[in-house]
Design a protein around this nucleic acid. Sequence first.
DNA 1: TAAAAATACTCCATAGGTATTTTAT
DNA 2: ATAAAATACCTATGGAGTATTTTTA
Lengths: 316, 316
Amino acid sequence: MNAPIELRAWRQFLHLAEDLHFGRAAARLHMTQPPLTLAIQALERRLGTPLFERSRRGVALTPAGAALLPAVQRLVHDAEGLPRIAQAAAAGQAGRLRLAFVSSIAYGPLPEWLRGFRLTHADVALQLREATLDVQLAAFDSDDIDAGFVLHAPGAVPPALGAWLALREPLVLALPQAHPLATKRVLRWPDVAAEPLVIFPREIAPSLFDAVLAAYRASGATPRIAQEAIQMQTIVNLVSAGMGVAWVPETVTQLQRPGVVYRALPAAGLACETSLVWREPAVPVVQRFVDHVRRAQRGPARGHVARTARTAQLRP
Amino acid sequence: MNAPIELRAWRQFLHLAEDLHFGRAAARLHMTQPPLTLAIQALERRLGTPLFERSRRGVALTPAGAALLPAVQRLVHDAEGLPRIAQAAAAGQAGRLRLAFVSSIAYGPLPEWLRGFRLTHADVALQLREATLDVQLAAFDSDDIDAGFVLHAPGAVPPALGAWLALREPLVLALPQAHPLATKRVLRWPDVAAEPLVIFPREIAPSLFDAVLAAYRASGATPRIAQEAIQMQTIVNLVSAGMGVAWVPETVTQLQRPGVVYRALPAAGLACETSLVWREPAVPVVQRFVDHVRRAQRGPARGHVARTARTAQLRP
DNA sequence: TAAAAATACTCCATAGGTATTTTAT
DNA sequence: ATAAAATACCTATGGAGTATTTTTA
C-alpha cells in the first residue's frame, strides 16, 4: 500500500515527462508501452493525484506533474552520481581529510603542499587545525584527525601510527635586536649559554627540547629557562620583549617581528624534525596525502624559502 | 549487470550505516538478516568497492561508505519529500504562478493581494512581469503566463479565458500644476475638452480609450490627442511637461510627480475596470489565486488607498 | 479509421524468507 | 562458547512481455 516509491518509478515519470509519449518513453526505458502505462497509473494512485493529462492529441503534464519534474530531475541526477562518489572515495580522490599541524610547518612548506594536493584532489574536503604533539596524539586516539604534522622524529611516534620525516631543518638562534650578542659576527658558546632561554615545554616537542638541552650540556653549560611558550609566534614575541633568546626552526625566520634578529649557527649542530603522522592502516585519502607530501618534498627545489638568518660563527 | 541502483538499496545502506549491525538494520527495514547481507554484497559489487568493514567486534564504514553516507541521506530524504510536492501542487499550494499585470494596478491593491497570497502559499514560486493587454493576450496564447491583470471589462476578454472584475475605479483628471484649470474649483466640459489629451493607445486599453472618447463625444466635443503613451509613469511625466491633460485611474494619483495635480470629477461618470484574467480551465494554483483576489477584494476595507485627488465640480 | 493508450493474461527475475554453516573473539 | 555474518536453498510478488481492446481526434 504505502510502500516507498522506487527510483524506477521516478525514472519512468521522468522519461514520460520528457517525451510526452508512452510508446517512445517506454522504448527509451527499454520496455514496452503497456507496463509503462501500468507503472505510471500505479505512481499516480500512490501519490493520490494524476501527473499526466492523456488525450488523443498527446500526453501533457498536470500542474502536479510540472511541479514534480524539476525535483525528480535533480533526484535521478543525484542518484546517478552516487557510484562515482563511492569510487572516488575508495581511490582517495573524495571524502574528508582532517589534518592537524604544528605552527612551525605552517611557515614552511605546508601551504604549498596543501595547494598542490588540492589541485589533484578537488573533491577532498580538507579540515585543518593547528595543534601540538600531545593534542594530536589524543586526537588520533579519539579519531578526531586523520593525519598530522608534529615536531618529532618519525621513529618516536607510537607504533600504531605511521610516520614520515617531512622536514629536517636547522635551528637558528633568535635574539633581541638590542642585545649585545646581535652585533657580533662570532659568538662563543659560554656567552650564548648564559642567556636566559625561551623554549617549548617538553611535552609539546620533546625531541626539540631534548636536542637543545643536550647541546647545552655538551658544551658544559646548564641552560636557564626563562619562559616556556607553545606558539612560535609567542616565542618570537617574548624574544622581542627581551625575555631571552630562543632556538627556532629556520622557516620561522619568515616571521619578521621587529626587534628580533636571527643567527644561523651551523656549528651548533642543532636541527629539528617535523614528521607527518597518520593512523595505520592508512585509508585511501590519507595514503594519497602522504604520497603527495613525499613527492612534493623532493620535487620543487627546496631553497625557495627566503633565507633571512645571517650566518654567524660559533666558537667553544 | 549495470542496471541502475534502486532507492531500496540506498535505504538498506543507510540503515546499516546508522545501526552498524546487520540484524538490527534488517529488523528496522522489516526484513531478515540474510537478504540484507546479500543486498549489501550486491551493492558493493556493483559499486566496485566495499562499503563496510565486517569484523567480529562489529560493522564499520569504509572510507567509501563514509563519503557516501551524507549524499545518500540527502537522496533518501529528498525522495521522501516528492509525494508532498505532488500533493501540494495538485492542491494549488505549490508550483509556479506566472502573473502579468498592467502598471496601474501595481499602484493600487496588487502589492497587498500578493503579500496575502504569499502568506498562505509560501511554496508557490511567483513570477511577475508588467505587460499591456495585447502582450498578455499573446502570452496566454503561447502559454507564457498563467494569469494577468488587464485594463479591460471582464466581458470583453476572449472566450477561452476566465475573467473577474478585480477593480473598478473612477478616472481622475491629471493636469499640469501651472495650468489655468488647476486653480479653478469648478471646471466646464468645453474647457476640459479643449485641452490636448495624453492617453493610452487604443490597442493597449480599448475599453478605457473608448470610454474617454465616448464621454467627450457625449458632451459634443472632439478630443485632441496630443500624445499616446503606454506606461502610467510616462503619461504622468508628459502631463508634468505640459503636453496636455490625461484621464488616469484614481490609484495612479499615488504617483506624486511634481508639477502634476489631480482632480476628481465624479460628474464625468468616467470609470476604468481592471480584470483578472486566466486560462480556462484554471489549474489549481491559478484557481487559488483567483479565489484569494476575490476574497481580498471585499475583505480589507477598500478606502485604505490615500485619496490624493481634490474633488472638483464639473459643469456642462 | 488509425494511432495511441488501456486492459487482460502470462512469465520469470529477484527480493525476501527459513535453515544452516562459518567466523572471530 | 557464542553472537553475528555468510551461505544455501526455497517461495512468491510484481515488473515486464505479448495479445487485444478501447478511445478519440
